[in-house]
Design a protein around this nucleic acid. Structure first.
Lengths: 111, 111
DNA sequence: CGAATACTGTGCCATATGGCTAAGTATGAC
DNA sequence: GTCATACTTAGCCATATGGCACAGTATTCG
């Protein structure tokens, strides 16, 4: 239940860059071409393409080429993995809180 | 509603390393000393301390020193920021889905 | 006090990351 | 066919990252 490490690694790394996070945000509104996406950022196309490749390599987006245009689309189910990890942390924390509350409720168990 | 970039940056960067993610997991069960935490990882203490500092610098943990022992504790509310970002993405995506569904429901609006 | 413990500080290293320019390829428009 | 468009490839560069060894410092234990 925690051996997703490699996948999560890639996902978090991909999301750790503000450019890539913004791309994800924009793709949330629907697929877009590399050129259209890139025009929103102050970096050169080759640099931008690296981000696109990183996002694709880590599964956050899917891209397809039609003619000379490459279109990017968000893979929403992959964001769910990140969500899942956070949910796990919450669960762990809540289990602990429950135990602490039990201690308070039954002080005879204490120490 | 998306200008958290700097904070999110740090949070995602902090979570992008498997060692640090595991530290967060362990601290979810309760505070622990640097030494105890470090003993679970195959790296040297100085290397491990870097991770601790990164986690603290990005606000994911709080540490206090008592005598020669430094104790680390999770700052759960900061994980909530990551959660918030994911929730925003979901909202954006759902808005879009709603619009698409409206198109299907009222085809006279199409194209 | 002297030794063991628990970090902490320094400095070095290899690799990864994110950016750039310059040049190339493939497709669509005229 | 020629030209503009939309990437794509290649190579370079500075900085960041994650790891190490080794040498401190500060507490606690006997």
């Amino acid at each position: 239940m925690a051996q997703y490490s490699e996948e999560l690694d890639g996902l978090f790394v991909a999301l750790a860059d503000p450019t890539r996070r913004e791309v994800v945000r924009r793709l949330g509104r629907g697929p877009q071409s590399v050129g259209d996406l890139a025009s929103a950022f102050p970096i050169t196309l080759p640099s931008f393409m690296k981000h696109v490749r990183t996002l694709e390599a880590n599964g956050l987006i899917r891209t397809t080429k039609s003619g000379r245009v490459r279109t990017c689309a968000l893979r929403r189910e992959r964001l769910a993995l990140v969500d899942g990890w956070l949910a796990e942390q919450r669960r762990i924390w809540e289990d602990r809180t429950d135990r602490l509350e039990r201690l308070v409720a039954e002080p005879e168990e204490q120490q």
